[in-house]
């Protein structure tokens, strides 16, 4: 029993990271109808910013995290103006290629600055964890779960309870109508990019002490997060969260009971099953192409 709970705890922790990145995918997709293939690199940039502030400059952890997150918001806006905005009237393919190009540029930019050696970050909380019954709750996983939970609640309140949240939803549902009502669509999309970069960056910052901080850390996370968002129902916010958590749990149990080397494979096995049996995902609805 305790081993099951232990695995569930770990799985939900890692699943939270996928959920944060998947949310970033979904929000940008809903606002622009384009999949951002640099979403994982937002996590990588966030983690490297932590290395810069906390390790290289020796700032306190909490302060480094605050600066890194603020920097991610600014980065998201720059990303919007550099990668998406100039191509906004084009079809999805040029934009997708633009995001792939941005991903390559970001990874190699960081490679040029930091070299190929992975960096490491110490754990963020000053205690290793707490034992409850037979289950050891690692402090970094606790932090991940707490921050993700808080973000989900904040995001819900923001989108459902504020006028700005409603305007962002309106923009994602019908951009032309939004502009006819006087909603500044370009600004709304800029805000979406900023927020998605914060989500991605936050995932990178939180996961950094568990993994090495390397230029391609984002790619693995993003692939899993992308799978998670399809499993949940692509374009669905709840689906991204549930899909991310589910994928983390499946992967952790698979590694424990079946095979550790094939750990990364389980996520994609689940993705294959969904694509064959329920391609619209858990929360997705079958939709015909809009007329």
């Amino acid at each position: 029993m305790s081993i099951t709970l232990q695995l569930l705890f770990t799985g939900l922790g890692i699943g939270s990271i996928y959920a944060l990145v998947a949310l970033g995918f979904v929000l940008i997709y809903r606002a622009t109808n384009v999949v951002n293939f640099a979403q994982g690199d937002f996590s990588m940039i966030g983690a490297f910013l932590m290395v810069v502030f906390a390790v290289d400059m020796g700032l306190p952890y909490w302060l480094s995290a605050v600066i890194a997150i603020a920097a991610m918001a600014g980065f998201g806006i720059l990303f919007n103006y550099g990668v998406y905005y100039p191509l906004r009237h084009r079809t999805f393919l040029p934009v997708v290629i633009s995001t792939i190009g941005a991903s390559i540029l970001l990874q190699n930019g960081v490679l040029a600055a930091y070299g190929p050696h992975p960096q490491s970050l110490p754990a963020m909380l000053p205690f290793p964890g707490i034992a409850v019954g037979g289950v050891f709750l690692d402090s970094q996983y606790l932090l991940i779960l707490a921050v993700t939970g808080a973000m989900v609640v904040l995001q819900y309140l923001f989108f459902e309870r504020t006028m700005l949240g409603k305007k962002l939803q309106a923009t994602s549902q019908d951009k032309e109508m939004a502009s006819l009502l006087g909603i500044p669509v370009a600004l709304m999309i800029g805000i979406t990019f900023a927020y998605s970069a914060v989500l991605g960056g936050l995932a990178g910052i939180l996961v950094a002490p568990l993994l090495f901080v390397s230029i391609n850390m984002g790619s693995t996370i993003a692939l899993k997060a992308f799978a998670a968002s399809i499993i949940g129902g692509f374009g669905d916010v709840t689906g991204a969260i549930v899909g991310g958590l589910a994928l983390g749990v499946v992967e952790t149990f698979g590694a424990a009971y079946i095979s550790v080397p094939y750990k990364d494979g389980f996520a994609f096995l689940v993705l294959f099953l969904f694509l064959m049996v329920r391609p619209q995902g858990v929360f997705g609805e079958k939709v015909a192409e809009k007329a």
């Binding site: 109508m177 009502l181 909603i183």
Partner: peptide, 23 residues
Amino acid sequence: PEGRRIFPGLTVRENILLGSSNR
């Protein structure tokens, strides 16, 4: 515009309120 273009995922009240976005 033609076709009404109601935001499908927002409530009626929210749809109407967003009409004031120009002010």
